[in-house]
């Protein structure tokens, strides 16, 4: 079972502060994302969604519990079982509510840098970045600096960056907040498609209930407690092979 899971968390807990200032952000959160599936994470602000996402993204350590990626134990309590930054670079793609682009790099360089940090040669990284930007409809803005891009364009560049290294784990924190509904749907579908085709697992934090049918499983969080709501009706992935969402070859 573990081998078929892209992401698995076992009784993850996160406590900030101690004594009277202690805040429990996550309580015994257990979650499984099979390879090729994307799950949605719903919940009110402050419920612990982002904490869970950053623990799975190997950005912060849990107080207790384990994180396994592709069956490999990478975090056990506060101790890392591998070089987390290097692991994150190679296997995890992030998309945030805010685009979070590097301001001194152009759109294409923002995508390119993620690959170059991973050891991809500059020329190869550049052509792949062009493919991704073309796919997201921002190739004509390739050489513009982030400050000159609209919120939607920035977010599309950020999504392209997250997908640049063909990650095994896709984590998104309200990725469609800055997108129009058509583009938002495309992004959600793309996550599902990439996960399905590459055998990656994805967790998407969202408040947007319009696209919940894209997800294979829906989790809800409240006061740090995670529970599965109900399986989404059918798998959306099967209906994704349309021309407008065809993934660039390099991404497969």
């Amino acid at each position: 079972m573990t081998e078929s899971l892209a992401i698995e968390t076992r009784e993850l807990s996160k406590v900030y502060g101690s004594g009277r200032t202690e805040v429990v952000a996550l309580r015994q959160a257990t979650l499984q994302v099979p390879k090729g599936k994307v799950v949605a994470l719903l919940g009110p602000s402050g419920s612990g969604k982002s904490t869970l996402l950053t623990i799975v993204g190997l950005v912060i350590e849990p107080t207790s519990g384990q994180v396994l990626i592709n069956g490999q134990l990478v975090v056990d309590g506060a101790s890392a079982k591998t070089d987390l930054r290097s692991y994150r670079r190679r296997h995890i793609g992030f998309v945030f509510q805010k685009a979070n682009l590097i301001p001194f790099l152009s759109a294409i360089e923002n995508v390119q840098v993620a690959m170059e940090l991973n050891g991809v040669r500059s020329g190869k990284a550049r052509s792949r970045a062009i493919e991704l930007l073309k796919y997201f409809g921002v190739v004509e803005r390739s050489h513009d600096m982030p400050a000159r891009l609209s919120g939607g364009e920035q977010q599309r560049v950020a999504v392209a960056r997250a997908l640049a290294n063909d990650p095994q784990v896709l984590l998104a924190d309200e990725p469609t907040a800055a997108l129009d509904s058509q583009r938002a749907k495309q992004v959600m579908e793309l996550f599902a498609k990439i996960a399905h085709e590459q055998g990656a697992g994805g967790i998407v934090v969202t408040h947007d209930h319009r696209f919940l049918d894209v997800f294979d499983t829906i989790y809800e969080m409240e006061d740090g407690v995670l529970h599965e709501r109900s399986p989404a009706a059918g798998s959306f992935v099967g209906s994704l092979a349309t021309e407008d969402t065809k993934v660039p070859e390099g991404a497969q």
């Binding site: 670079r89 992030f94 979070n100 001194f104 940090l117 960056r161």
Partner: peptide, 15 residues
Amino acid sequence: DKLHSIALLKLLGAP
């Protein structure tokens, strides 16, 4: 002035 970019680079896994 670059701290946010540096944090972002670290998040992207920059050594």
